[in-house]
Simulated scan of single mutants.
Amino acid sequence: MAKFEEVKDGVIFPVGDKNDAYAKYFVGQSYLKNLITDPKINVGVGNVTFEPGCRNNWHIHHDGFQLLLVTGGEGWYQEDGKPAQFLKAGDTVVTHDGVKHWHGAAEDSWFEHLAITAGTPEWLEPVSDELYNQLKKSISK
């Protein structure tokens, strides 16, 4: 049984639907509930939920940024060329314009965060299983 099973029902905001629109940019299943989609502003806010082991591809935000507010479960965030950061509820991440990065669930845990995003994403290659599997071994709970 995975840790933080309650996350699959939504912690603060609804979990949303299967993230089919962006499925090709994820390894595993994610869910998305768009919370703010005002076309008059260049900022979107979404509740993103990851099943255990799910992660998005490497990506870059151009002409903007991304803020992550972790609301449940356990996961990872990594910028290219830097060590991965283990994330849990209450953690925050600031990703500046032009920084290549990825984020997603720990192998054995559901994971949920609010993503506050401005600008245009450029989706890149998947996070390799080799890299991801090394992260799983680097934390013992």
Rank of each mutant, 00 (worst) to 15 (best):
E130Y: 03
A118K: 00
K136H: 12
V48T: 08
E5Y: 07
V70C: 06
V43E: 02
E112N: 15
Y31A: 03
E6T: 12
I41Q: 09
G72N: 07
R55A: 10
Q134E: 15
E112P: 01
H61P: 01
I41E: 07
S109N: 05
T49M: 12
N42H: 05
I36R: 02
K40M: 06
G44Y: 00
P14R: 06
N42A: 09
E6P: 06
F4L: 03
D97R: 05
G53D: 12
A23C: 04
W102G: 01
E112M: 10
P121I: 07
W58Y: 08
P52V: 08
I12D: 09
G90W: 07
W58R: 03
A84V: 14
H103W: 09
G104T: 11
N56V: 07
N42G: 13
G98S: 10
E107W: 00
K18C: 03
F13G: 04
W58P: 00
P14F: 08
G16E: 04
L124E: 11
T37I: 06
T117D: 02
V11G: 02
S128H: 02
K141E: 14
K88G: 06
M1E: 13
T37Q: 05
G28V: 03
K141S: 13
E6G: 11
Y25T: 15
V7F: 09
I60T: 15
K40L: 08
G72W: 12
V45K: 00
P39E: 04
G98F: 08
V70Q: 03
E125K: 12
P126E: 11
W76A: 11
A115F: 05
R55H: 14
A106D: 13
Y22F: 14
D9G: 12
N34K: 08
W123D: 09
N133Y: 02
R55G: 03
D108W: 00
K100S: 10
K24A: 09
G75Y: 13
L67N: 11
P121R: 08
A2C: 02
F65G: 07
Y132G: 11
K136Y: 04
Q85A: 11
G98Q: 12
G10M: 13
G28Y: 02
S109G: 07
V7K: 01
V94Q: 08
D38H: 08
W110E: 11
A105D: 12
F86A: 13
P126N: 11
V43D: 02
K88Q: 14
D20I: 05
L131E: 15
S30H: 04
L131G: 09
D80M: 04
G16Q: 04
E79S: 13
G72Q: 05
S138M: 11
F86Q: 10
C54V: 03
T120C: 01
K100H: 09
